[in-house]
Simulated assay, not measured.
Amino acid sequence: MTAPARRISLTGIKPTGIPHLGNYVGAIRPAIELARDYDAFYFIADYHALTTIRDPGELDLYTRSVAATWVACGLDPERVTLYRQSDVPETFELQWVLSCMTAKGMMNRAHAYKAARDRNREAGLDEDDGVSMGLYNYPVLMAADIIVMGADVVPVGRDQIQHVEYARDIAERFNQAYGDRFALPVPEHVTSSDGDRNTLPGLDGRKMSKSYDNAIPLFGDARSTRKLVRRITTDSTPVEDPKDPDSSTLFALYAPFADAAEQEELRARMRAGGMGWGTLKDLVADRLEEHLSGPRARYDELMEDRAQLDAILAAGGARARERASALVGSVRAAVGIA
């Protein structure tokens, strides 16, 4: 008896900066864990990055950095498919077909476009000032990324659910028109059951983000990471007084790298008093170095060996393109172009 085919999961990563600890805990680690249960595809969305990045060298650096990060963090390119979006040109052919199925009104309601219009209105500018067609059409390209691989599930944060809902809606519109000849897969979103626990605070206590300039790079060297941890904002609670782990940025940074028993031990020490913030900062820095020194060495190796990284991406791109080509061929036949 033939075993049923494993369902497909798809994760997209936009290369707009050097990955930080928040990216690892909130997105990278949960997405890698999905590979246990799904036939997993991971792509680096280099064309998506063109909405904000204009420096070719920067885009190349960030693309390689993201790929090296995922491999260093445990993604096995022999078991999963890791590829560049730009290596699958069928995606962009499918985007046009899907654009013809997409209502303009739906694009007007897309979160990123609405946010840009709102900022312009508040600033007294024309509501479309600075809005490119790349930003406006972003959800259609994302739908094509998802559908071209036949993805069943897409792991996303809560703020990204709309993109998967749009992909579902667009696929269903196509199926209404051409489903008697070929039906597109209709994807579902998957969000982490951990919810806000997967959101790390940054140096100032706000959500860790490059845009807030409060992030700790995932693979910074031990010395620079320790210096950043020492900069984390704390209150003036004396050493001898109890401290609340649930409101502590330092405990929130420690917890994802500790098991349940270690977390409870630190909670007890903080509540008992006698531990100063400086001691806790050193403990956090030590724990980060413990967990990240090995992956950092692998990351540095990949960043220094461009040929090795390019070979990984080329192999993944070939597998991804074979899959995409089959689906787009069926779409072409369905619409009458084949």
Rank of each mutant, 00 (worst) to 15 (best):
R117I: 11
E122C: 08
A112L: 10
R84C: 09
P89E: 11
C100K: 12
M107V: 08
A115T: 13
K104A: 15
E58N: 04
Y62W: 09
D129A: 14
N120H: 06
R64H: 11
N120P: 01
T91P: 09
W96F: 13
D126G: 04
D129E: 13
K114R: 15
T81G: 07
D118F: 09
D126K: 01
G130S: 05
P89N: 10
L61Y: 11
D87W: 09
T63H: 03
T63I: 02
L82S: 07
G124F: 07
V97D: 02
L125I: 07
G57C: 06
F92A: 05
A103C: 12
T69F: 07
Q95K: 15
L94R: 05
L82K: 01
N120Q: 05
E127V: 00
T69W: 03
G134F: 03
E78C: 08
M101N: 12
Y113P: 03
A103N: 14
M133A: 10
T91A: 11
W70S: 04
L82N: 01
M106A: 14
A112S: 12
L59S: 02
D129F: 14
A103W: 14
A72M: 02
E58D: 08
F92H: 08
A110V: 03
D128I: 04
D76C: 04
V131I: 15
R117D: 05
V131R: 05
K114H: 08
D118S: 14
R121L: 15
G74W: 02
Y62E: 02
Q85R: 07
G134L: 00
G57E: 12
N108T: 11
P89H: 09
A116R: 02
M107C: 12
G134C: 01
W70Y: 15
E90C: 09
K114M: 12
T91H: 12
A123I: 07
L82H: 02
G105H: 06
R109H: 12
T81K: 00
R64V: 02
D128T: 00
L59C: 04
V97I: 14
E78M: 10
E127R: 02
C73A: 10
V66I: 13
L61K: 10
D118A: 15
D87N: 12
T69Y: 04
R119G: 06
E93I: 09
D128R: 06
G134R: 01
Y113L: 05
R79D: 13
V80S: 13
R109Y: 11
L82A: 04
L82R: 06
D128H: 08
M101V: 10
L59Y: 03
D60E: 15
M107G: 10
V97A: 10
G130I: 03
G74V: 03
E122T: 13
G124A: 04
C73K: 00
V88M: 09
